[in-house]
Design a protein around this nucleic acid. Sequence first.
DNA 1: AAAACTATGTATAACAG
DNA 2: TCTGTTATACATAGTTT
Lengths: 225, 225
Amino acid sequence: MGRGKIEIKRIENSTSRQVTYSKRRAGIMKKAQELTVLCDAEVSLIMFSSTGKFTEYISPSVTTKQIFDQYQKVSGINIWQPHYERMQDNLNKQKEINNKLRREIRQRIGEDLDDLTIHDLRGLEQNMESSLKTVRDRKFQVISTRTETHKKKFKNMEETHAKLLREFEGRDDEPHFAMAGHEGEYESVLGLGNGGSHVFAFRLQQSQPNLQSGGEFGMNDLRLA
Amino acid sequence: MGRGKIEIKRIENSTSRQVTYSKRRAGIMKKAQELTVLCDAEVSLIMFSSTGKFTEYISPSVTTKQIFDQYQKVSGINIWQPHYERMQDNLNKQKEINNKLRREIRQRIGEDLDDLTIHDLRGLEQNMESSLKTVRDRKFQVISTRTETHKKKFKNMEETHAKLLREFEGRDDEPHFAMAGHEGEYESVLGLGNGGSHVFAFRLQQSQPNLQSGGEFGMNDLRLA
DNA sequence: AAAACTATGTATAACAG
DNA sequence: TCTGTTATACATAGTTT
């Protein structure tokens, strides 16, 4: 090639190395393109110069991603498999835990009891009894706190009202308490109403989206090497 | 190149296309190798012939994975980002669902009730009451079934025994029933024991492993294009 | 089908502006 | 540092073995 036989050996002069790189890069790019056109080949050529400059040729019939995928398939090396597998594992673990949790809740709702032994059922019953007691206690605690507060408020208002009455004494013929309208609220606080709350128990009705991945992407078969 | 100016145009004859491919492939591989040595470049050349045959050249100083990673970094295109993101999303969704389920269970166990309003508490209580009733019903149902079965078995054995007695009549002076040893089992079936089962409620104690991934692998920065 | 040959066009090293 | 020129080694299409 060129004047005098060339030795294929690292060019020590950095400048002429860069020049040579530019020229030969153009040459090899052309070759790649010719190969693509002449022979219907799919070619991916990626080059980084010693200074880190990046150049690529890719056959117009494909994308670099396709080449990478194909490379992995053919070479048997799934470069990103470790990540992918790890994530998939995690996903599966989460799903498994999820299912267990769902099942537990269903059993606590009274569904899906068929698989349980009498022993299990007795355990569940006892557990639910004590849990129910805890919830009940908590409810009463909250109610009593609220009731106490209301009592205080009420007393306060009574006093205020009495004071007002004293201030206005003589003016009004017939004093009247202005406390009506609180009874309803009071009642609701005490839990006498029974328009039950349905906040619980059906959160888990939300359909679980199909989270299985793989396959539909070009991630290949992900078989083990 | 060669005898007569060659047109760079798809070779229609399949055989000579393959031959040309072989020859030129060798040529371009040589060029790639020369570029590597001469210019300190990092070169990745991947080719698939029209028949699908795979050939690659890779500079000895690097691995194909490194080239791919570098390619993604430089080109700003993270080829596998969509999968990765999608999986991460799924994982997060699963975790979220998981946490909700855990919380629900905790509340059904009587923990984590502080955030609940009186309304919620009343709903939870009612729900638990009815669920408990369902569980209790189921338990009794199972017990009665088993009891029925045992009764039948018992009756059957009694008859068998009576038959045997009749067959052996006259031989034995004093007939004795061989039914001892069943009482214990019977009792346990009837739920009289109270060495409670602890099957429930603490499945969710299993620690949730840290499933966050990314970063530690060479997956690059995964920033958006 | 694969290897060898060879005539000829290409790529490019060295050089010049 | 780029652009152009040129001599020459190289790659290779077509052919033969």
